[in-house]
C-alpha cells in the first residue's frame, strides 16, 4: 500500500514540476488564453532540456549520483521558482483547465479516458522487457551511487566517449528513485509510463484544439478518435503502439510526446509566428530530445523540417524557416559527433 501511495505521489509531483517549469516558456503570450495543459507540455520539454544539460556537466565532472541529484533538483527548483515569479498572476489565476459549459463535460470525458489508460498501464499491462538495458542503467547508477559509470550486469566501467554520453541517462528517473525510494522498475514502468501517457494525451488534445479554432467539442472528438485509432492499430509504427508496450522508453517519449509537441509548436507558430518563447521552446525541444534515444538525432530534425517549412510557406512568414536550423542544431551537432565528423574534447 505504501508503495502504491508513493508511486501515485511521484506521478503527481512530476506533473506539478512539469506544470511549474513550463511556466518559464509558456505557449501563450500577452492576452492569449492560458492553458494548464500546454504549460505541462512545455514543462516536459523544459524539464528534460535542463536534465540533459545537467547530465552533460555531471558526466564531464564525474559527479556521484548524490551530487547529480542535488544539482538537478536545484536546477529544477530554480526553474520552477523563476516560473512562479515571472508568471505569478497567470499561473495561479489565469490558467484554464476547463473550458466551461458543454466543453467541460467533453474535457472531463477525455480526462476519464486518459485515466482509464493510465489505470490499464498501471494495473493490467505487463510492460515490455528491458532490451536496451535502460532500467538496468538506472538501477546500477542508484546501487553504486555513480552517474553513468558502470555497464549494467557487469563490474566494468563504461568506455565513455562523448559520442555516447548523452543518450539514455534518464536523470530525472534517477532523481525520483533517489528521492522517493521507489524501485527503478516501478519508477520506469509505472511513473514514467503514466506521465508520458498523460503528457502525450494533453499534447494531442491541444493540437486539435488549435487546429479546429479553439472548438472544444471538435478537439475532444478528435482526441477520442486518436485514442481509438491507437488502440485499434497494433503496431509499434504507430506511436501509441510504443506507449502501451514500452511507455517508459526514450522511443515512446520521442514518438508520443516530442513529435506531437513539434506539431503543437507549429500550430502555435501558425497563429503567432513572431513569439520568441515558441522559438526558444523549439531550441529546448531539440536539446531535450537528444537525451531520449539515438534515433532522435535523425528524427527530430526531419520532423522539425517537415512541419515548420510548410507552416512558413503557407503563412508566408519566411523567418520561420530559420526555426528549422535553430531547433535542429543540437541534435545535428550530436549526430555529427556520432558520425565522427566532429571532434570534441575527451572526457
Amino acid at each position: 500500500m505504501t508503495q502504491m501511495v508513493v508511486t501515485a505521489a511521484a506521478v503527481m509531483a512530476e506533473l506539478l514540476v512539469l506544470f511549474l517549469t513550463g511556466g518559464v516558456m509558456p505557449f501563450a503570450a500577452g492576452d492569449e488564453k492560458k492553458s494548464a495543459a500546454e504549460t505541462i507540455c512545455a514543462g516536459f520539454v523544459v524539464t528534460h532540456a535542463i536534465t540533459e544539460i545537467v547530465s552533460l556537466v555531471a558526466l564531464y565532472m564525474h559527479f556521484t549520483l548524490t551530487k547529480y541529484v542535488y544539482v538537478l533538483a536545484g536546477a529544477l527548483c530554480f526553474a520552477a521558482a523563476l516560473s512562479v515569479v515571472v508568471n505569478f498572476s497567470s499561473v495561479f489565476r489565469g490558467t484554464s483547465v476547463f473550458s466551461g459549459g458543454i466543453g467541460f463535460r467533453f474535457s472531463a470525458f477525455i480526462a476519464l479516458l486518459v485515466a482509464a489508460g493510465c489505470a490499464a498501464l498501471v494495473i493490467i499491462l505487463p510492460g515490455a522487457g528491458d532490451p536496451g538495458h535502460v532500467i538496468a542503467r538506472v538501477a546500477k547508477d542508484v546501487y553504486t551511487d555513480t552517474f553513468g559509470v558502470y555497464v549494467p550486469g557487469t563490474g566494468e566501467k563504461a568506455a565513455f566517449t562523448i559520442a555516447n554520453m548523452h543518450v539514455r541517462y534518464y536523470g530525472l528517473d534517477e532523481l525520483i528513485v533517489r528521492l522517493t525510494g521507489l524501485h527503478p522498475m516501478t519508477e520506469m514502468k509505472i511513473v514514467r509510463s503514466v506521465v508520458t501517457h498523460i503528457v502525450s494525451s494533453l499534447i494531442i488534445y491541444r493540437v486539435f484544439y488549435r487546429l479546429f479554432d479553439s472548438n472544444t467539442i471538435r478537439a475532444s472528438f478528435a482526441a477520442i478518435l486518436t485514442y481509438a485509432a491507437g488502440l485499434l492499430f497494433r503496431t509499434p509504427y504507430t506511436p501509441q503502439g510504443l506507449l502501451y508496450g514500452a511507455g517508459w522508453t526514450g522511443e515512446a517519449a520521442i514518438a508520443c510526446v516530442m513529435i506531437p509537441f513539434i506539431l503543437l509548436l507549429a500550430q502555435a507558430l501558425y497563429d503567432r509566428p513572431g513569439n520568441i518563447r515558441l522559438w526558444l521552446l523549439a531550441v529546448l525541444a531539440g536539446i531535450a530530445s537528444v537525451s531520449f534515444t539515438e534515433s532522435a538525432l535523425l528524427i527530430i530534425p526531419c520532423a522539425m523540417a517537415a512541419v515548420f517549412i510548410p507552416t512558413a510557406v503557407i503563412r508566408k512568414k519566411w523567418m520561420l524557416l530559420l526555426l528549422v536550423p535553430a531547433g535542429a542544431a543540437v541534435p545535428l551537432i550530436v549526430l555529427l559527433i556520432h558520425m565522427n565528423a566532429l571532434a570534441v574534447p575527451a572526457l
Binding site: 494531442i204 493540437v207 486539435f208 487546429l211 479546429f212 471538435r218 472528438f221 478528435a222 482526441a223 477520442i224 478518435l225 486518436t226 485509432a229 491507437g230 492499430f233 509504427y237 504507430t238 506511436p239 501509441q240 522511443e251 520521442i254 514518438a255 513529435i259 506531437p260 506539431l263 534515433s295 535523425l298 528524427i299 526531419c302 520532423a303 517537415a306
Partner: peptide
C-alpha cells in the same frame, strides 16, 4: 524504420472524420 514515427498516423483519421 523509426522515421515512420514522424507521421502522426493515428491523428490523421481523427482529423479527417472531425
Amino acid at each position: 524504420y523509426s522515421v515512420l514515427w514522424i507521421v502522426p498516423i493515428t491523428m490523421i483519421p481523427a482529423a479527417g472524420v472531425v
